[in-house]
Nucleic acid binder design. Structure first.
Ligand SMILES: [Mn+2]
Ligand SMILES: [Mn+2]
Ligand SMILES: [Zn+2]
Ligand SMILES: [Zn+2]
Lengths: 135, 135
DNA sequence: GATTAGTTTGTAATCATTACAAACTGATAA
DNA sequence: TTATCAGTTTGTAATGATTACAAACTAATC
């Protein structure tokens, strides 16, 4: 992607300064940031930024299908602009969320044969490699 | 299970009236109720019941491993006393959450080889059979 | 009956999210 | 240019689920 503004435009989103910065932030910070961390990170560059704008913008991104919400924990919604199919692992020790590849073929039982499945989320929890080695 | 009180005891939980009723409710109502729906359903039988007790009790159940929280949606935590491995499908039309069987073998990529995976949650979203037929 | 630990309850506090309306911006047209 | 207007951003207030906390209660033990 050479131009974030064009990318937003082709997805039906008017590329305002704030929207471009928020999308760029998601692309460059793949640790699945929260609204709060996005706001705090961008508040330096955009001193007038409102947290409401961050909420609004992420909602637009999700509606237009260029980002997703990751509710891997009940007290923090995280956001991800990497839209390829992948799963998320959350380390209960260091709280980090790690991406991993997933093959959904054959995973689902027959109970859902007549269901339309439009979205999938696989969340794993445990202790990451780094935390295991440190203890 | 013939005696809920004994079951709670063997899991290190003192079987108070409220705890027994809440656990029985989870067993008999497998639609993954929220704190609110559990509270409202039991308030008739237990007029003095406090919502805080429902929160406290569910927390104990989860700590002791006899129930789990299902955060399939970011604005409502649901609870499940069926602890066998299974996935959850949420219909975005009627909001119902349906259980389905899952085979996790071979689903996870190599990225997590050195990770300790202790818990898994597979959430699917879409339109259920009933809603599909009705439209 | 007194003591005590554990449980329940009601209220207040917290905090993420949403609602809302005013202010602002940038494009379009007179 | 100036006026208009839709869309965007902002700050503040409201909402609502969850948590914190302390008093009241319960049931077992001494
Ligand atoms: Mn991711
Ligand atoms: Mn279930
Ligand atoms: Zn870790
Ligand atoms: Zn449905």
């Amino acid at each position: 992607m050479n131009n974030v503004g064009d990318f937003l435009k082709t997805n039906g989103i008017k590329p305002s300064y704030q929207r471009i910065k928020i999308y760029e932030y998601l692309m460059q910070n793949k640790e699945h940031p929260t609204v709060d961390s996005i706001y705090n990170a961008l508040n330096g560059q955009i001193p007038t930024l409102s947290k409401t704008t961050v909420y609004n913008t992420l909602k637009i991104f999700i509606d237009k299908g260029i980002a997703m919400a990751i509710t891997i924990d009940d007290n923090e919604v995280r956001y991800d602009a990497w839209m390829d199919i992948h799963g998320h692992f959350k380390c209960t020790h260091c709280q980090q969320v790690t991406d991993f590849s997933v093959d959904f073929d054959g995973i689902v039982g027959e109970e859902l044969l007549d269901f339309d499945v439009l979205e999938r989320q696989l969340f794993l929890y445990g202790v990451c490699k780094k935390c295991k080695e440190e203890s």
